[in-house]
Design a protein around this nucleic acid. Structure first.
Lengths: 351, 351
DNA sequence: GAGTGTGACTGAAGCGCTTCAGAACGTCCA
DNA sequence: TGGACGTTCTGAAGCGCTTCAGTCACACTC
């Protein structure tokens, strides 16, 4: 245990024979002292094993920590295995890192979002929230701490920066595409509407009380075109295996849907697999569309027709907004990203 | 700008009419004061908008920050898009989160690893390093700060906890499997040997001077069986498209290799694709093996023969080691995880 | 009634750093 | 020669919290 006490600014100061302020300046304001002295200080510091000002103490004194927090609605596991999350996170990370900020991860739990105590303990100057349920306690915790907040894919919150995507419009485009191909019997596959782990056909009441904005909007877009009676299969996450389960459920219905609308590409990949396993040809027997246009969508078999959203850009914008808020900027207008339909080979007219 | 000054412990203390120490105890040591007073304090705090002790100040006073740092050899983008990284990170994250610790991400850059200044500024009590090049400056920066360190897939470092996998043995198993099937003409696909972006056939000198332990060991395992003259195609990362490029390069050689040994599953998936595009049947015309056994390996076409390593467990162990070091534990023996060969359908005897 | 606990609360000393208003000392020009 | 100015360095006041050695009052025991 008891490591030898680490050197501090004072240690260095007295070793060199100058004041602590001067040593601090050597690190933070080179223009405040002569080059020679600075050199001497840095050398001495190195020789006694001083690694520079302690980040925590510095944060306390300066009242900012050069870190941006990232809150997630799901376990990190889910986040990393879902390209739609990890690509966003990547855009965010590269932006903040370019500005010498760290990224502090606050993973969520079953109830959708980090525990408030996690939020209360994390050292961050600003936090970015992604795919939390509406009214997640973590959101309140952030505001209670008075930290600036930027949300991605989240409903409008007062005094909060925001990046958003036209999920409903995108979903509508996908559905309209299928309808224009001549489909009339649809099935919808969606990830969680509520963070309660439900899996199965979602009754209308569930649909209308969804607390995840993304699910809600994509679903609304689909149903606006296909009609409110379209069967909706809900699964508790955006994973291939869950998509497969859902597709199996839907493709067993009779009459069988001729088109499957999936709330994400991962779900759609699962649907593709399920169709194959059931001996159904895609798009011959059943058409499938996804949402996101993750990189793999062009390599699936068949390549997936899907709604493209700019995932990296989403993270990047969130990062820029966070940085702007840090500089005391105002939230401003939400940053809105476009969606486009990408037609590939998983859709065709029904037989 | 100028937000109203935030309430502190003192604000609450004088509002309630007790000492600051008592308010602190209300949060951290409920047994040190009467339940009634504690209640009163917490209520008052809530009413004046005090969100609990400031994490930074607390860290300074307690001298630990409840955060574990994670250093990565690559950009975060690469990390998240590579399952072999993201699954490890997930295991790590869930472990530390379960212990009320945050994860601070320190992404690397082109030169392989976070900048030393990033390391110097990050508030963390312990750091976990993954797939950095040997002798990365970031490693020195950690030791300069006197932080405990745990490394994954990294050479032995004095006084450092470590989790490791028998990469060489695994690679050898994969190669031996092919050889026992009767193959004699091999090609090897590896991700970066040096963080310099090189792409192409790697001359022997490059191979022997590799600075990434994982590449080096897997390569060594392959070549120990296939012979030192086996052509090695190096690409600067573990991605499908790069695997495709490499496989194209290798499959154009004459005589054409009948078996491709890939340093990762992602590279192997790319190889599968390249073979298809060149009109070659797998495993009829060419066998392909991967390394990692990521979840998709069972769903590729054909399902991939590969070397399984326990990725989640790897992250989990790293997390446990980190936590143990935090408690003042000693590094102890390295934690070694097993590898096994998983035979699927991408390998067969040569024609 | 003196002695012994015990539970509840406080005072004050830090944790390691930044920052700002000077002090000290030259230099330079009028 | 003296004042104005620059440069270089310092003293001291925080930043918001934890913690430890007490103090105090009030039972309780013999």
């Amino acid at each position: 245990m008891d490591r030898p006490r680490k050197p501090t600014l004072d240690t260095v100061a007295s070793a060199v024979g100058v004041s602590r302020a001067t040593v601090s300046n050597a690190y933070n304001r080179p223009d405040q002292l002569s080059a020679a002295l600075r050199e001497r200080i840095l050398e001495t510091a190195a020789s006694i094993g001083y690694a520079g000002p302690d980040p925590v103490a510095r944060s306390l004194a300066t009242r900012h920590s050069a870190a941006v927090g990232f809150m997630l609605g799901q376990q990190l596991s889910a986040a990393f295995s879902d390209p739609a999350v990890s690509i966003v996170l990547d855009g965010l990370a590269s932006t903040v890192d370019g500005h010498d900020h760290c990224l502090v991860l606050m993973p969520g739990n079953e109830t959708g979002g980090p525990r408030p105590s996690t939020v209360a303990r994390a050292a961050a100057d600003v936090v970015v929230a992604y795919s939390l349920p509406d009214n997640a306690p973590a959101l309140d915790a952030v505001r209670a701490r008075g930290l600036p907040l930027v949300v991605i894919d989240q409903p409008v919150l007062p005094d909060t920066a925001r990046v958003e995507v036209d999920d409903e419009g995108g979903a509508r485009m996908a559905a309209a595409h299928l309808r224009s191909l001549g489909h009339v019997r649809f099935g919808v596959i969606t990830f969680g509407l509520n963070p309660d782990g439900y899996s199965g056909i979602a009754p209308p009441a569930r649909v209308s009380s969804a607390v995840f904005r993304v699910s809600r909007d994509r679903l609304a877009g689909f149903l606006a075109v296909t009609g409110p009676d379209t069967p909706v299969f809900e699964v508790p996450g955006s994973r291939r295996d869950l998509g497969r389960t859902a597709a199996r459920g839907l493709l067993r219905l009779s009459p069988r849907p001729t088109a499957l609308l999936c709330a994400s590409d991962e779900l759609a990949f699962g649907a593709l697999q399920a169709a194959g396993e059931l001996g159904l040809d895609v798009p011959g027997d059943v058409s499938v569309v996804g949402f996101d246009d993750v990189p793999f969508a062009q390599h699936s078999n068949p390549p997936l027709t899907t709604v493209r959203q700019l995932l990296t850009e989403k993270g990047r914008r969130a990062g820029e907004l966070a940085l702007r808020l840090l500089d005391g900027g105002r939230p401003g207008e939400p940053s809105r990203l476009p969606v486009t339909l990408v037609e590939r080979d998983s859709t065709a007219p029904p037989e």
